[in-house]
Nucleic acid binder design. Structure first.
Length: 654
RNA sequence: GCCCGAGUAGCUCAGUCGGUAGAGCAACUCAUUCGUAAUGAGUAGGUCAGGAGUUCAAUUCUCCUCUCGGGCUCCA
């Protein structure tokens, strides 16, 4: 009998019988590994354990303790769910069911337009568990396109996939199961099979640490003109502990939901009477926002910006010239007729800043001109897209337009990137991920030279800052390349906040010019940029980032003084007014409630500091300091020392 | 906008297989004056999102509208 030799990752070799599979290899190495193995990586490609090995390959076995198995587990669990759905709802037809971050989903359609609700999830999950108990094998088969069309004739979405991608006519990224004229599928039982590229775990018995999460709608192929399919999302993990930890993280994230915290902390509300996506800022929220905006203004003053204001509406001619009515009309609020003219609420501030530029003849000596405005804009967001402060219909941008010569683009961008990162760091973010979006392949405006100059300017600024970035080739707008900056928050979620966007279009549309050193007229370039982006959204992100525990410089109430008993009320007020005189935000919580209750209230209210004052303190001129997040009380601290500490916190933006 | 779900006191929620509602917290009153995460007693608070229908009777069943949530799509 012939034999074959395979190499293991540690360099050792194993001799197997001809036709042996990865599972055979695992068994030969040891029973423990045979039990733990889920898939194999053969010469860098992940395959089923049942795949036959050939002479000379390098094989690595992926076990159920290997993070790399997650992808396969999730993918197989998606199949498991599809089988359960088909069992419970015969006649269901399936589209795609890929693994995603933390889990998987599957899109499908039930016969007669039947729909599922969250209550159906439990039944599907139960059915999945019994399929796990049945320990069905995932059997791989490969057939021709014609055979596949026949096999899947009852599955219109599968047929469409086979037809549109057969022969590798188009990108086959999402349908790896079809390569050339071979289609692979997996069979689990007499009744269930699914077109799929694999690999899968050996049997359904290897699955189990999953939970179905929600049922949702999803357009077929993500196209809103195509049918709306049903989608079930689930999560799946290597073991019970990981699953539990993930569910716990979700709960924690829910606890810091900015809409919940905004309500609990009395910061912002969304009265029904205003309409979707429109918020009112309560005094405490407004105080925090004012502090944020003041800080922004201060930074912009230091950064050499000039401030501007502009109205909330303007005549249609402005939006015709800017091109917004051509390109962005769907996102704009509807027009108002007045005095024979048509007015639109502004979706962006740029045309107004252009008007300021145009109000004078500009010389190259004037450039760059940096106009800054906290400008409130209105955008018609689809009702289903509105989401608290993170996606609203009225919001304020920390918006600036920099008018610059094309020669100065690179220098300005380098400056800007400094400015952006400094600002984000001040708000407690230090994990950044940037994205450089380059010229789109289709139509775009501007000559090659300026695109190259601008794109290189952006790229070199990113390099100079050592900023981690990805390049989105062709992802730029038709009017210029851009940099977007994502930040990671305290629980690892990424938020896109800042954007630096070049524009070769608006200066043309508005016929902007400056007189160069050569005495000729030249076209400036515009840079649009927002650091926080939308103040509302930024506030929402901050609220979630800090879980409501705003650092002292932003906390609406920085200190609360608690007299132990009524006898200490006067001293408490003295301490409070001393601190107030030092510019701090301080309140006194009188001794009408027991001390323990007031301490608790102070903690629940997320105050940076709660001071307790009693007999000892009155005598010595001290306070007892409770610091947020610390269990121990710092007794006998003089008022001066405490004030210095708080001052330091505010200074350091802690 | 599309799919699914939800809307009960200021907040978090219970409840009614159709007979117009209840708890905890918060608020208010009284007592308690206390050195570190909930003192006790009491009072008040609801057109059960809005409208229509079925019914002797609707918060409950049906339909429509509004708002919110989770997705999809969108975010020149």
């Amino acid at each position: 009998m012939n034999q074959l030799t395979v190499r293991l990752p540690d360099g050792s070799e194993r001799v197997l019988e001809d036709g042996a599979t990865a599972a055979d290899l695992a068994a030969q190495i040891g029973p423990g590994l045979a039990k733990a193995a889920l898939t194999a990586v053969v010469d860098g490609t992940e395959v089923d354990l049942a795949a036959s090995l050939t002479d000379g390959v390098t094989v690595e076995l992926v076990t159920d303790r290997d993070e790399r198995a997650l992808h396969t587990i999730r993918h197989s669990t998606a199949h498991l769910m599809a089988q359960a759905i088909l069992d419970l709802h015969p006649g269901a037809t399936f589209a795609i069911g890929p693994p995603i971050e933390h889990g998987f989903y599957y899109d499908f359609e039930l016969p007669d337009g039947k729909t599922l609700s969250d209550e159906d999830l439990a039944a599907i999950e139960d059915r999945m568990r019994s399929l796990v108990d049945e320990d069905q094998p995932f059997e791989r088969h490969e057939i021709s396109v014609d055979e596949a069309l026949d096999l899947f004739s009852g599955e219109p979405y599968k047929v469409e996939m086979i037809k549109s991608f057969a022969g590798g006519a188009a990108s086959s990224d999402d349908v790896g199961e079809i390569s050339g004229d071979v289609v692979s599928y997996y069979r689990n039982s007499d009744t269930f099979l699914d077109m799929c590229t694999g690999p899968h775990v050996p049997t359904t018995g290897r699955l189990g640490h999953f939970k179905l999460q929600k049922v949702a709608g999803a357009y077929w192929r993500g196209d809103e003109k195509r049918p709306m399919l049903q989608r079930i999302y689930g999560t799946a993990w290597l073991n019970k502990k990981d699953l539990k930890a993930h569910l716990h993280r979700l709960e924690e994230a829910e606890k810091r939901d900015h809409r919940r915290l905004a309500n609990e902390m009395d910061l912002v509300s969304w009265p029904e009477e205003l309409g979707p996506g429109l918020a009112v800022w309560h005094p405490k929220g407004a105080l925090i926002r004012t502090l944020m905006e003041d800080f922004s203004r201060q930074r912009h003053t230091e950064g050499g910006y000039e401030f501007a204001f502009s109205p909330h509406i303007a005549k249609s001619v402005l939006w015709e010239t800017s091109g917004h009515l051509d390109f962005y009309a769907d996102g704009m609020y509807p027009p108002m007729e007045m005095d024979g003219a048509t007015y639109y609420p502004k979706p962006m501030n740029c045309p107004f800043h252009v008007m300021i530029y145009k109000s004078n003849q500009r010389s190259y000596r004037d450039l760059p001109i940096k106009i800054f405005e906290l400008g409130t804009v209105y955008r018609y967001e689809l009702s289903g897209a509105v989401h608290g402060l993170l996606r609203s219909r009225g919001f304020t941008q920390d918006d600036s337009h920099i008018f610059v010569t094309r020669e100065d683009i690179a220098e300005q961008i380098a400056d800007l990137l400094d400015f952006v990162l400094d600002m984000l760091r001040a708000f407690g973010f230090d994990d950044f991920q940037a994205k450089l979006s380059t010229r789109p392949e289709e139509k775009s405006v501007g000559d090659d030279e300026i695109w190259d100059m601008a794109t290189e300017g952006l790229r070199s600024a990113l390099d100079a800052h050592g900023l981690d970035y990805i390049v989105d080739e062709g992802g730029g707008a038709f009017y210029g390349p851009k940099i977007d900056v994502d930040v990671k928050d305290a629980i690892g979620r990424a938020w896109q906040l800042s954007t630096i966007q070049l524009d070769f279009n608006l200066p043309d549309r508005f016929d902007l010019e400056y007189i160069g050193a050569d005495g000729d007229r030249h076209r400036p370039v515009m840079i649009h940029r927002a650091l926080m982006g939308s103040i509302e959204r930024f506030f929402g992100v901050l609220l979630e980032h800090y879980a409501g525990n705003f650092p002292a410089w932003l906390a609406p109430e920085q200190v609360r003084v608690l007299p132990v008993a009524e006898a200490h009320q006067e001293y408490a007020e003295q301490v409070a007014s001393t601190l107030k005189a030092g510019g701090f935000r301080v309140d006194v919580d009188p001794a009408t409630d027991p001390l323990g209750k007031r301490v608790r209230r102070g903690k629940v209210d997320k105050l940076p500091y709660v001071l307790v004052v009693g007999d000892d303190d009155v005598a010595a001129g001290t306070v007892g300091v409770n610091t947020r997040g610390e269990k121990d009380v710092d007794r006998d601290v003089t008022v001066e020392d405490f004030a210095a500490r708080l001052h330091d916190d505010v200074d350091q933006k802690r």
